[in-house]
């Protein structure tokens, strides 16, 4: 009665043809994610903004109309003109060029911080979640201890003691941020731990390391990626805050936080400086958040128990 039953090896398999057919039909996972991502217009917009930002950051030396640290004391706090589309700051430096170079710093901080702290956090979270027991206790209590520090004061202290510059800021922000990755990773691991496919992997003889790398990691990756896109703007904000408070990157290197700071001093003379640098931060943060939202939906389809 059933035509779709066949015995092992009884049916001749035209392997070449089957594989040909497969290749035609294959839609990769990434394509699927992109298809779903495209539906979210806001996320698409965010992605566009981010791409622009990245291009600007990379090609700042070519794109910037002026040298960002070249001062011009005869033309300070100027209003927009053809030569200076966004005006100049209190030392006569071109605001647009400083913004462009600032994007470099902002993105560098955002990505580096998230990369390093994400790496550390995810690894420790995986270990805590899968091992459990006292290892879990030690890691998670360490996380609690780090979380108990007031972020900004912690960062201030660290940046001051490590000296000025880019890397102290990255370390300061990263030291706080890894805890968030560790927590979310551990939480995800615990929710997957009782799924049958973990046990079933054990039953076919997968080693413990493989189970972590092939079964846990791919399943928590979507959450991590989303987390990362939310944490990047947070890192940019935190770095800007530290700049604003006067630690971290020092003038004449341009950073958005420093621009907001000096802009705010001269607000009554020329509000443009503080506005554009503030807007740059806001737009970047929003763009990352939009992309994060879109990614969450795109990466997390109704996989489990879906129709």
């Amino acid at each position: 009665m059933t035509k779709d039953d066949s015995y092992f090896g009884e049916k001749e398999i035209d392997l070449e043809k089957e594989i040909e057919d497969l290749k035609k039909k294959e839609t990769s996972q990434i394509e699927l994610v992109w298809l779903r991502f495209k539906r979210n217009k806001l996320a698409l917009f965010g992605l566009g903004v981010l791409l622009m930002l990245i291009i600007v950051a990379i090609f700042a030396p070519i794109l910037a109309p002026h040298d960002p640290i070249k001062t011009d004391i005869y033309n300070t706090r100027a209003y927009p003109s053809l030569e200076h589309p966004l005006g100049t700051d209190q030392l006569g430096r071109d605001t647009l060029s400083r913004l462009m170079y600032g994007a470099r710093i902002a993105l560098l901080i955002g990505l580096l911080v998230v990369f390093v702290s994400g790496g550390i956090g995810v690894t420790l979270g995986l270990i805590a979640g899968t091992k459990g027991g006292w290892i879990d206790e030690v890691i998670m209590r360490t996380v609690d201890a780090f979380l108990a520090f007031p972020t900004l004061i912690f960062g201030l202290a660290l940046a001051t003691s490590l000296g000025f510059g880019l890397y102290p800021v990255i370390i300061a922000v990263g030291l706080v941020m890894w805890t968030r990755f560790a927590r979310i990773t551990r939480g995800e691991v615990l929710s997957i731990k009782n799924e049958m496919f973990i046990e079933s992997a054990e039953a076919i003889g997968e080693s413990k390391t493989h189970i972590v790398l092939r079964y846990f990691l791919p399943n928590i990756l979507p959450s991590i990626v989303v987390m990362a896109t939310i944490q990047i703007p947070w890192a940019i904000l935190a770095a800007a805050a530290l700049n604003y408070l006067g630690v971290g990157i020092q003038p004449p290197t341009s950073s958005w936080g420093e621009m907001v700071k000096s802009g705010s001093v001269y607000m009554q003379f020329n509000p443009l400086l503080v506005t554009v640098s503030g807007m740059a931060i806001v737009i970047t943060v929003l763009a990352f958040n939009f992309v994060g939202d879109g990614l969450r939906d795109a990466l997390d389809p109704v996989r489990r128990g879906g129709k």
Partner: peptide
């Protein structure tokens, strides 16, 4: 790799599934 594919397709056929299912995700 060829022997592997042959084996996979074979057992899928036995289970009433087809080679095209190889590229499918569980959902």
């Amino acid at each position: 790799e060829e022997e592997k594919l042959r084996r996979m397709v074979d057992i899928l056929n036995t289970m009433g599934l087809k080679a095209e299912h190889l590229i499918r995700y569980p959902h």
